[in-house]
Computed example of a mutant assay.
Amino acid sequence: MKELLRSTDLVRLSFLSALLRDAGVEPLVLDNHMSVLEGSANAIPRRLAVSDEDYAAAKRVLEEAGEPLDEDD
């Protein structure tokens, strides 16, 4: 799995997940349960990730939509 970005914005994560699914890429939102354990105070960002094989396609889809990625590489 490769992480695309981190966000505390649930609406944005839902939108980006829908964009990826429409493009045939299955995303996974990580740390969902950790945020709930912290009282949903949005202190812990959720991570949007995809399989290693889908990373290039997912990155392209999000860039075309004008969505910035959290890139450390």
Rank of each mutant, 00 (worst) to 15 (best):
K2D: 11
K2T: 11
K2C: 05
E3D: 05
E3V: 14
L4T: 04
L4Q: 03
L4E: 02
L5Y: 02
S7L: 06
D9G: 00
L10Y: 01
L10W: 02
V11W: 02
R12Q: 13
S14Q: 11
F15R: 07
F15Y: 06
L16K: 04
L16M: 13
S17K: 03
A18E: 07
A18N: 08
L20D: 02
L20M: 13
L20A: 07
R21K: 13
D22W: 06
D22M: 11
G24S: 08
V25Y: 02
V25P: 00
P27N: 07
L28Y: 08
L28Q: 07
V29W: 01
D31P: 01
D31A: 13
D31F: 11
N32S: 11
N32T: 13
N32W: 10
H33R: 15
H33T: 14
V36T: 11
L37M: 14
G39Y: 11
S40C: 14
S40K: 14
A41S: 13
A41Y: 11
N42I: 04
N42K: 10
A43F: 11
R46W: 02
V50N: 05
V50P: 03
D52S: 12
D54I: 05
D54T: 05
Y55C: 09
Y55I: 12
A56R: 03
A56C: 02
A57R: 12
A57I: 06
A58Y: 02
A58W: 03
K59A: 10
L62D: 00
E63N: 12
E63V: 13
E63L: 15
E63D: 14
E64M: 08
G66F: 04
E67P: 03
D70N: 04
E71P: 03
E71L: 15
D72G: 04
D73W: 15
